[in-house]
Design a protein around this nucleic acid. Structure first.
Length: 506
RNA sequence: GGCCCGUUCGUCUAGCGGUUAGGACGCCAGAUUUUCAUUCUGGUAGCAGGGGUUCGAUUCCCCUACGGGCUACCA
């Protein structure tokens, strides 16, 4: 019988979740849903020094905003708890001890200072220090020291760590679900610390123990973990869990839009796009990092763009709902190479989703923006404005930039347009038109336009020559929605007032 | 330096031995629009290099180059 699929997203609460992290969560979520399995959230807070207050809450809120709600985990309940590693602290030591008993791990008493010195010395000699089969015999550990001394040191309360004893000259081969067969020779690997002197496990031990205890079937994580895969596989073996251990998949990294390396917080600041799902305020420095949500992205757009960063459906489709992603997702369609993030395309996704929204829905999102500008307007008017300007918008906030003139009169007029379009007789003609507007009663765009047209024809005035300056008086620039729609929406009084004001000003 | 992963238009990608190498973003041009934007149509641009294997390589293998990751008592 096939085991039920269980995957986990296991971030460390050391700061806000990066969009790469969200993508990892998304792929895990999609894989779980696709196979009718479970998606868990585990918090890997084994490093007490790097704990950042608020980070855990941020992670949970981010997942919720994206619609990636875990079936189990911190904040979501479940039978395999606790899901916070700091709360599982007590159970890790026994596994470390078991490894020592089996000869797969050993105590090491070397201090951080001693190891630092060794590393520094090696660097001077243009080599690298590695705690491995070549050096372990010369260092202070339960392999080099006598059993008595080891017992004595422990008795005495000397600080120690527990290290994995990397076996000699073994090829560890694994078929990564994304990358295919990958092989490592253990001679190139070092003796990683499994259990720290502060009583906490390291990532490696905790991760393997928890994945086993939580019956995780598939580990889907970033490529930065690929080098530690052999260690993890060896740990499963040493603990006797080889038969049930999970399969591995390593996702490609998300790279900077330009330049070298993986996407970082700095890139967002520098190039003006968010790298975090939600706005984040650093509790230490007070620095604020923008978020996709606060920048006006719709969660469905964010999810969609993330999904396409390293995955494709194998055809030309680029727009997917969450349901479609679940339906179509497959690990073997994940790309192997790193993906440069393109902020321009991100906007394009949002534009698409914005255009899909109903006028009513957008009006409701736009209303708070208006209110924040101190503008009160009827829902009907807001909806009408949305209808007229939404096609030129990418974000809800663009509605204001594109449609503010529906609510407030222009304060100044574009110089270039004045010079190009405002002729000697323009003021006079506009004044005449004011009269026409004054007497017009059927205040509908089409009707006004018709009246205008007739008026122009009678006088043999050039339609275009007068429309441009007229637009200028109402909008302040030569851009904007259909002129007669504007006239209709702002109303007779306001239209005339704006024209008159412009005549006086220009 | 060592280990591992990767390499198709500027960018994201399709391609899984025989294709005019397809799509999308961006960019450019034209059409529509009384303006701007939208929309539509068209265009620009790519298989890193060198060896093999094969009747035939973008596709398979090797080497080189380049890119990326890891190399902590961090995850």
């Amino acid at each position: 019988m096939e085991k039920k699929v269980r995957v986990r997203f296991a971030p460390s609460p050391t700061g806000p979740l990066h969009m790469g992290g969200v993508r990892t969560a998304l792929f895990n979520y999609l894989f779980a849903r696709k196979h009718g399995g479970d998606f868990l959230l585990r918090i890997e807070d084994t490093d007490q020094n790097r704990f950042v207050p608020g980070a855990e809450e941020y992670i949970i809120e981010s997942l919720k905003w994206c619609g990636l709600v875990p079936d189990e985990g911190v904040g979501f309940g479940g039978d395999c708890g606790p899901y916070r590693q700091s709360e599982r602290k007590a159970m890790y030591r026994q596994y470390a001890d078991e490894l020592i008993a089996k000869g797969n791990a050993y105590y090491a008493f070397d201090t951080a200072e001693e190891l630092d010195a060794l590393r520094a010395k090696a660097e001077e000699e243009k080599s690298t220090f590695s705690y491995d089969l070549h050096t372990r015999g010369k260092l202070n550990n339960s392999i080099s020291l006598s059993a008595e001394e080891v017992a004595q040191r422990i008795e005495r309360g000397d600080a120690f760590v527990i290290r994995f004893k990397m076996p000699e000259n073994r090829n560890v081969t694994e078929t990564d679900l994304i990358r295919g067969e990958v092989t490592f020779n253990t001679n190139t690997l070092d003796d990683k610390v499994l259990f720290k002197s502060d009583g906490m496990p390291t990532y490696h031990l905790a991760n393997v123990v928890d994945d086993h205890l939580m019956s995780i079937t598939h580990v889907i994580r970033g490529e930065e973990w690929l080098p530690s895969m052999p260690l993890h596989i060896l740990l499963y073996e040493a603990l006797g869990w080889a038969e049930t251990r999970p399969r591995f998949s390593h996702l490609p990294l998300i790279l900077k839009p330009t330049g070298k390396g993986k996407l970082s917080k700095r890139d967002g600041d520098k190039m003006g796009f968010p790298v975090f799902p939600l706005l984040w305020k650093d509790p230490e420095t007070g620095d604020v990092s923008r978020g996709y949500r606060e920048d006006g992205y719709f969660p469905e757009a964010f999810v969609n763009l993330l999904a396409l960063l390293g995955w494709s459906a194998g055809n030309d489709q680029e727009l997917f709902s969450m349901d479609e992603l679940v339906e179509l997702f497959s690990l073997d369609r994940v790309v192997k190479s790193g993906a440069r993030f393109d902020p321009e395309k991100a906007k394009w996704f949002n534009r698409h989703y914005l255009q899909q929204k109903s006028n009513n829905e957008l009006a409701q999102l736009f209303m708070p923006v208006l209110n924040s500008k101190g503008i009160q307007a009827s829902p009907e008017k807001v909806e009408r404005v949305v209808e007229l300007v939404k096609e030129r918008c990418e974000f809800v906030n663009d509605l204001w930039e594109q449609g503010s003139y529906f609510f407030v009169a222009p304060e100044n007029y574009d110089e270039k347009t004045i010079q190009k379009k405002w002729k000697e007789d323009t003021s006079e003609k506009l004044a005449t038109i004011t009269g026409l507007l004054q007497s017009h009663t059927d205040w509908q765009a089409a009707s006004i336009k018709e009246a205008f047209s007739n008026f122009m024809n009678e006088r043999e005035w050039n339609f275009g020559a007068i429309m441009a300056p007229m637009r200028l008086t109402l909008v302040g620039t030569s851009a904007g929605a259909d002129l007669f729609d504007i006239i209709e929406v702002i109303g007779k009084e306001e239209t005339i007032a704006r024209i008159q004001r412009a005549i006086q000003t220009i």
